[in-house]
């Protein structure tokens, strides 16, 4: 998927049907992988346990593992006594808007980069690489200063705009590789039929690119949904997001600490659902784009 070093032959490989693989599944490997998966889930499971225990045993040392009645009190308190709903809406709105805008801007740019050969494209891709690697503070602190001067500090708009810019390089990169997969002859045929470039992109390319766009969209959405640093610096009371809220609760006393854990659970459940649903498409989508450089 890298524009750079890939030397793989440009043959399209069909993903083999799972049936053939199952025949050879290695039981030791399977058991190891199940163990690994459980280990990977451990922090999540542990937090889920902690927030559903009654407060007096939630963080007891040594941990209390049984003999208590699970409770959803922390969730109830979170919902009733804090502005959690508002933080969640902020987080979701910013993630959705920034994803849509990043794709709307990124798709044509990625398409152009895949069709315009030579130095200009290479330099622009290189720039995208450099932008992706920038230390976040190098752009976010000036954004803080500028947004305060412009009076847009602590708005969903400012945060979404920042995230569009920050996530743009990654989405362009990913999309550019998907476009590179589509033979140029297809564009030419479409243009002979009277399509403009924009028409070609809209009528031919985008429908063909659906798995690629979905993949890029899922990634950008996840990045935006998770973003902590940018939100920490650019928001305060009006557009606070859930990750920022959770970190301001780490030094709280018991019931509120449990609420923070509950907030973490509620923030995570939707993305876990997404990851379970999307993983199949992600592998397929990524392999379409990535096999050839």
């Amino acid at each position: 998927m890298m524009p750079s070093t890939a030397t793989a032959p440009a043959t399209r490989v069909v993903v083999p049907a799972p049936k053939r693989r199952r025949r050879r599944a290695n039981p030791t490997a399977a058991i190891l992988l199940i163990l690994l998966a459980v280990l990977m889930l451990a922090p999540f499971i542990w937090t889920a346990l902690s927030v559903t225990k009654p407060t007096d045993v939630a963080f007891a040392n040594p941990p209390v593992l049984s003999g208590y009645t699970p409770t959803l009190e922390a969730f109830k308190n979170l919902w009733e006594t804090t502005y959690f709903a508002e933080y969640l809406v902020n987080t979701a709105v910013v993630a959705v808007i920034s994803t849509v805008v990043a794709l709307v801007l990124g798709i044509p740019a990625a398409y152009a980069l895949s069709r315009f050969p030579g130095y200009v494209s290479a330099i622009l891709l290189l720039l995208a690489l450099v932008f992706r690697s920038l230390p976040r503070f190098a752009v976010v602190l000036p954004m803080y200063d500028i947004s305060r001067a412009l009076g847009i500090y602590d708005t969903n708009f400012a945060l979404a705009a920042a995230l569009v810019a920050i996530n743009q390089p990654f989405s362009i990169w990913l999309l550019r590789n998907f476009f590179a997969e589509i033979p140029k002859e297809l564009d030419e045929a479409a243009m002979i039929d009277g399509c403009t470039r924009w028409g070609t992109l809209r009528r031919i390319m985008i429908p063909l690119m659906r798995p690629g766009i979905l993949t890029a969209g899922v990634f950008v959405f996840l990045f935006a949904f998770q973003e902590y640093l940018t939100a920490l610096v650019l928001t305060d009371t009006a557009s606070k997001t859930v990750p920022v809220f959770i970190t301001t609760q780490l030094g709280q006393t018991l019931p509120m600490l449990q609420q923070a854990g509950a907030a973490a659970m509620l923030l995570t459940l939707p993305v876990i659902a997404i990851s379970f649903i999307a993983q199949k498409y992600l592998v397929a989508g990524l392999s379409d784009g990535s096999v050839k450089g």
Partner: peptide, 9 residues
């Protein structure tokens, strides 16, 4: 899941 959890969470 580990990847989609917000880093700080």
């Amino acid at each position: 899941v580990a990847y989609v959890l917000p880093g700080v969470v």
